[in-house]
Design a protein around this nucleic acid. Sequence first.
DNA 1: GTTCGCGCTTGATCTGGGTCAAGGATAGCA
DNA 2: TGCTATCCTTGACCCAGATCAAGCGCGAAC
Lengths: 248, 248
Amino acid sequence: MYKEISLPEAHDCADCPIRHRAVCARCDADELEQLDAIKYYRSFQAGQTVVWSGDQMDFVGSVVSGIATLTQTMEDGRTQMVGLLLPSDFVGRPGREGSAYDVVATTDLVMCCFRKKPFEKMMVETPHVAQRLLEMTLDELDAAREWMLVLGRKTAREKIASLLSIIARRDATLHLRPAKGKLVFDLPLTREAMADYLGLTLETVSRQISALKRDGVIQLEGKRHVTVPDLDRLLIEAGDDSDGGMFA
Amino acid sequence: MYKEISLPEAHDCADCPIRHRAVCARCDADELEQLDAIKYYRSFQAGQTVVWSGDQMDFVGSVVSGIATLTQTMEDGRTQMVGLLLPSDFVGRPGREGSAYDVVATTDLVMCCFRKKPFEKMMVETPHVAQRLLEMTLDELDAAREWMLVLGRKTAREKIASLLSIIARRDATLHLRPAKGKLVFDLPLTREAMADYLGLTLETVSRQISALKRDGVIQLEGKRHVTVPDLDRLLIEAGDDSDGGMFA
DNA sequence: GTTCGCGCTTGATCTGGGTCAAGGATAGCA
DNA sequence: TGCTATCCTTGACCCAGATCAAGCGCGAAC
């Protein structure tokens, strides 16, 4: 249905936007050169599937720009999102043949891919890569556990507020704005994708967003552009007034 | 309420029951000696809290025997279990001060602890430890994502069947019995702990277990001793007839 | 400009699992 | 040998969120 966009320009790690946050963050010049030798870029259109669950995956890589999702699907079609991949996040698992999940681009997406075999070799030889990957994986595990609380115990309203607060804060750190007081951002997900993330139906998502808007917790311009007048208020609605869910 | 049991006997890594599965699995004799120098054993009684969420943690370690749980609690008391720690599982996160979760012993528990500072030093110097920990963390992340599907999309009956099938299979591999056909095991969790794991109430857990018993999917002797006459049947009830959730 | 399709909203109704409440079984202990 | 505490079961009722259904708004294609 879509065809992959080829990306003509070569990229230099030196001015890579995710250089200091991705799996290569700890690498020195020499190690970067090694990575450079096995890397290539791929672009995907919004909606395009990057890998199907169960399919052979001959690469691993980092999200450079755009957003992708990890989802699991049951035989009868029920689906649960299990990961939201933002720029600098890592895709794939060294030492595993196939993908355990569907990976789908929800916006236009650029990935920095490494051929798997040589990457696995580097994992063994250059501890900086393995160390950074461990750190990132531990962060993702924390995020996954935070989501288990959201999925298992929070109400629909709290779930929506939790998701909004996470996106708001991620967006703030990405644009280096202070994550407090008034925040403005665009929702990178459809109502259906939010529902899949939160274990809800899209109707419930829609209703709860309308309710938060009616109650003045958020303002909406169009369907995607959100203003949060008071982050603390949103966090209270999310059920965690201290500091709640962080993504990877 | 409880007091910690001191463990007089010294343990030798050579005849450690979790030697080949724990974080030390890849270590050679020399590395084991290094670990041996910074390790000590601690025992806890069933019900005792190992660490409180937020508390300083000056050790990391492996579960040697018994079962512990990781739980998160909201201000109003709602709790969600986010990890079930069986023998060989790792507790704690290198590079973090406090614990993010409550760790509670659900049965009598023995842990092999490493002082954190020297362990972190070893993480940098001996890649075998870091490599094994990465592998284990990736497995835990997969398990967490499997549970996100259970929490977000499965019915109460499917949730119970999922939990039973996981415990059944874990128990089978632990005792080196084939995980097929007829299985017999003891539930290591109270109804309330199961509810906390599955995002249900204890009443619903009780009702669904009764229903599965009534329908012949399981047999019960007392409240804890379970017989699964047909694992495939249980897996179908769990909503995944192929191969479903694996723990860490 | 019209039509299509997709993403979204809103209403009406239904239901799975929560809540409240009343016991039963077992084990430890005086 | 009963007392108490913990864990579990079962019933009656209720409600948050699912399901079913109708329709809106807007951008893209013709």
